[in-house]
Design a protein around this nucleic acid. Structure first.
Length: 609
RNA sequence: GGGGACGUAGUUCAGUUGGUUAGAACGCUGCCCUGUCACGGCAGAGGCCGCGGGUUCGAGUCCCGUCGUCCCCGCCA
């Protein structure tokens, strides 16, 4: 096949643009052959670009030469069609496409490029498996759905940029090659050639740089920025991902919330969704108590405290430990539960109890309770606001002979188990109860929530020490400062998460701006002055030079777009994502490198194979 | 690191209790067709059943290992 050059040919319209009003006009369309329908003496070609599709007509009776040329076209050839827009006769209108009222009769066809037959076609109705899609990502990205997702991503990012810029934020770049601060996630390391044995690290977040930008007097900073974490992947976790990172000087928490609500409103508006602000708020303790979870899905019913349903005699006879929490999970509209499912629910109880260590709670078989203790059962139904078809699972603790289950940690574990059970059961019965059904109203119901007052520290049982729950630059509550030494577990932080329908979208805090407090925190974390200095010396020093009170937040752009696109995986909204084993199937990375490269870097590697 | 699901034609899948020549749809190639739009009709090509080993007279099917993809737990301050 002879290929044509573009020459000085200029596109007049995109392929999805033509309407009735264009009838009679001479147009130039440039794009790909989406489908061809060869009827013998007439050939229809759908020409496609990112904007849509137009039907081209090649009629042998009208233009034999062009018809001949068109008969050689195949899927994904790149063509230029010069022709006239024609109104379709009433019986040939295609209401399924935007350009369905017109077609283009082609006077001149240029084949700008041919194409090997791809392993799958963008126009295929069934979607190829992900391994194939990722290897031939450039084909996959031609699919209408992927084009829409990437466009949505662009629109959302632009709306956020505009909103933040309008709110007085500067977009400022921070380095990708920076310093390793081993804590939290593993760093991706970049070896230095100039200093053999030394490494840069790719940032897990621009945390310290953005704080230093506040010290530098920039007042309000943001960046839509790539971050890197060398940890195992999930459907909603990629090793490189994009954050909307921002920091501001002199804010209270509420000011940060206002800024975020404003740009999220703009972002969702770009996707055609009106949000209600301000968002709901809930403290960490409340969230745990009501949902057993620090990122509750507000579309779901909260758990209920069912203690009032029991008399003391009930508790004694049922051997329920009254010092523990008593809550019930309600999953709406599940309907009848089979014996097998009851067994599965009990098994889930055991599994979750095991996962949460020493917790001694159980799921009570509610149907049995309804038989044996109808008064208690109906009281529980009442407390939960249960409808007849709802599944109720009471979570209580059975009094043990040793009576060992009363610690605060165990109570917390009990809420957690109940919360996890609620999620698992919700997933399990998703096709039956309506709250999780994607196609239902729930899929377009966006319930934002601010979770506040996170604990400052978490105790690490394994290492027998306190860790920063958020990060060590988070400011404790003013009035909890005196508990830093005496009762670290009770110290609340000025830290907050923004949560959407059970997904954590972002996390931030008011930071420590005083060097004396920062030192205290490092002490509480069991870090000596020397150690703090060697790891964060540059930052501690910066804090000493007139640091304004400041705070900020970072939100996952990929997750926001994923939710807006109604996708199940980040890979659907990231153009070139990695597999669950962190491999890029298209470029085949990572790869071994040459000995010469390694020698230059002063690295000796033992071959693995 | 652990658990689970999957791997058969270019693609999506079926393949019974282990039994003759491994099927379908879409795609592809050729022919026919002037109003299709997921065009239609006829004919055809296309398979290391992921890979390696084992059990068996006989393996796509059973067993072991291995590789890959996906999901979950751990991990992700």
């Amino acid at each position: 096949m002879r290929l044509d050059f573009l020459g000085n040919l200029r596109r007049t319209h995109m392929c999805g643009e033509l309407r009735l009003e264009h009838a009679g006009q001479q147009v130039v369309l440039l794009g790909w052959v989406n489908r061809r329908r060869d009827l013998g003496n007439v050939i229809f070609i759908d020409i496609r670009d990112r904007n849509g599709m137009t039907q081209l007509v090649f009629d042998k009776g009208e233009n034999a030469a062009m018809h001949e040329k068109a008969s050689a076209l195949r899927s994904e050839y790149v063509i230029a069609a010069i022709g006239k827009v024609r109104r379709r006769s009433a019986d040939t209108i295609n209401p399924n496409i935007a350009t369905g009222e017109v077609e283009v009769t082609v006077d001149e066809l240029k084949v700008l490029n041919d194409s090997k037959l791809p392993p799958f076609l963008p126009s295929d109705t069934s979607i190829a498996n992900e391994e194939v899609r990722l290897k031939y990502r450039y084909i996959d990205l031609r699919r209408e759905q992927m084009q829409a997702n990437i466009e949505l991503r662009h629109n959302v990012a632009m709306a956020i940029r505009q909103s933040l810029s309008g709110q007085g934020f500067f977009e400022i770049e921070t380095p990708f090659m920076t310093r390793s601060t081993p804590e939290g996630a593993r760093d991706y390391l970049v070896p230095s050639r100039v200093y053999p044995g030394s490494f840069y690290a790719l940032p897990q977040s621009p945390q310290l740089f953005k704080q230093i930008l506040m010290i530098s007097g920039f007042d309000k900073y943001f960046q839509i920025v790539r971050c890197f974490r060398d940890e195992d992947l999930r459907a909603d976790r990629q090793p490189e991902f994009t954050q909307i990172d921002l920091e501001m000087s002199f804010p209270q928490m509420d000011r940060v919330f206002e800024v975020v609500e404003k740009f999220l409103e703009a972002a969702f508006k770009a996707a055609g969704i009106e949000l209600k602000s301000p968002f709901l708020r809930m403290t960490y303790d409340e969230a745990l108590r009501q949902y057993g979870n620090d990122k509750p899905d507000m579309r779901l019913p909260a758990m209920s405290d069912i203690r009032p349903a029991f008399t003391d005699e009930d508790l004694a006879e049922l051997r329920i430990d009254p010092s523990m929490e008593m809550v019930a999970i309600r999953i709406p509209k599940v309907g009848k539960i089979s014996d097998r499912e009851k067994k599965e629910i009990r098994a889930l109880s055991d599994e979750l109890a095991k996962r949460n260590g020493n917790f001694a709670g159980v799921f009570y078989d509610f149907s049995q309770m309804e038989k044996k203790r109808p008064a208690v059962a109906s009281k529980i139904r009442e407390i939960c606001g249960a409808e007849p078809d709802d599944l109720i699972v009471p979570v209580v603790a059975i009094a043990s002979a040793e009576g060992k289950t009363h610690s605060a940690a165990n109570k917390r574990a009990q809420f957690t188990v109940a919360g996890e059970a609620r999620l698992e059961l919700g997933r399990k019965y998703a096709d039956r109860h309506n709250a999780f059904v994607r196609s239902g109203d729930a899929a377009r119901d966006f319930r934002f929530l601010w979770v506040t007052d996170f604990p400052m520290f978490e105790y690490d049982e394994k290492d027998q020490r306190w860790n920063a729950a958020h990060h060590p630059f988070t400011s404790p509550h003013d009035h909890d400062m005196d508990k830093l030494e005496s009762d670290p577990g009770a110290v609340r932080a000025l830290a907050y998460d923004v949560v959407l329908n059970g997904t954590e979208l972002g996390s931030g805090s008011i930071r420590i701006h005083r060097q004396d407090i920062q030192r205290k925190i490092f002490h509480s974390l069991g870090m000596s002055d020397e150690e703090a200095k060697s790891r964060f010396g540059f930052f501690l020093e910066a804090l000493e030079y007139g640091t304004p009170p400041h705070g900020g937040i970072a939100l996952g752009l990929d997750r926001i777009v994923m939710i807006l696109a109604g996708a199940d995986s980040l890979r659907e909204v990231i153009p070139f994502p990695k597999t669950a084993k962190a491999v890029d199937l298209m470029v085949d990375a990572p790869t071994p490198v040459s000995d010469v490269q390694l020698r230059d870097l002063g690295i000796v590697v033992k071959p693995q194979r």
